[in-house]
């Protein structure tokens, strides 16, 4: 089942004195992966929190298909992996990951497959305190995937993961959500990662965040090492960097 489209209509969000998001209109297409890139502190996490319904907009609307975020959440069809893995310290890795399925009221039969896939095979019975920061993040990613959500929100999910593992995860994980037609919003600091993993890249302005550029990456091209080495890949990266720089100057 394909995940719903995410639609922002003229959204504004303030925190006390700072306006994090203003005049924000964007569509995250159904079943696609949309990457958000922008200067740090511009409001990317706030956009994800708005999608998850963790905070409501001051003005404008956020719709997930025909529903509001809270309705999708209640169905157990949402999942997130935040920057902070926030695993429960008293649970083992396996039971932390299984918690994602339990809370969403979904079967947890592929927990062990996911543990292998994120490379935590030998650590299933360890507690979070015994893992490195990168390993904890991978456990949090597995937890977000285990409930097979319709909407998946990833906030710098690989930030603390070492370069080699990150490269491997960049190839191994995306099929999991691509093949199931999950609608994904991915925040990343790495422009290459955005081009590699997403169907579209939204370049955001400095705070308050609004959309500076909406760039479609190569549709239908397999995300393999040939793509990574191609001219298209480099061109797309350059266009995103350019958009980011104009935003920073203007």
């Amino acid at each position: 089942m394909v995940g719903p489209e995410i639609h922002f209509e003229n959204v504004k969000k303030r925190f006390d004195s700072v306006t994090a998001v203003e005049a924000f209109s964007a569509t995250f297409k159904a079943g696609q992966t949309t990457a958000l890139v922008g200067p740090s502190g511009c409001g990317k996490s706030t956009v994800l929190r708005l999608i998850a319904g963790l905070t409501g907009p001051d003005e404008g609307t956020v719709r997930l298909g025909s529903e509001v975020p809270a309705q999708v959440a209640r169905r157990g069809a949402l999942a997130v992996a935040f920057q902070d893995p926030s695993l429960l310290p008293w649970r083992t890795v396996r039971s932390n990951i299984a918690l994602g399925a339990e809370l969403a009221r979904k079967p947890s039969d592929h927990v062990d497959t996911l543990i292998e896939l994120v490379g935590l095979g030998g650590f299933a019975d360890h507690r979070p305190a015994e893992l490195s920061g990168g390993m904890r993040q991978r456990a949090a990613i597995a937890r977000s995937l285990v409930s097979q959500p319709e909407i998946l929100l990833l906030d710098e999910p690989f930030g603390a993961v070492d370069a080699i593992t990150r490269r491997r995860l960049n190839t191994d994980l995306p099929p999991l959500w691509r093949d199931r037609g999950t609608t994904v919003a991915l925040v990343t600091h790495s422009v290459e990662e955005a081009v590699l993993l997403s169907d579209r890249v939204l370049v955001l302005s400095d705070r308050p965040a609004s959309v500076l550029a909406d760039i479609a990456t190569a549709p239908g091209v397999p995300r393999d090492s040939a793509y990574r080495a191609s001219d298209t890949f480099r061109e797309l990266s350059d266009r995103i960097f350019e958009a980011l720089e104009t935003g920073a100057v203007g």
Binding site: R49, A52, G53, L54, A70, V72, A73, R74, R75, G76, L78, A79, V80, F82, D84, S86, L88, G100, L103, A104, S147
Partner: peptide, 12 residues
Amino acid sequence: SQNWTDFMAVYG
């Protein structure tokens, strides 16, 4: 921590 309450809220 708020991270945990947020985490629960994401699953409704």
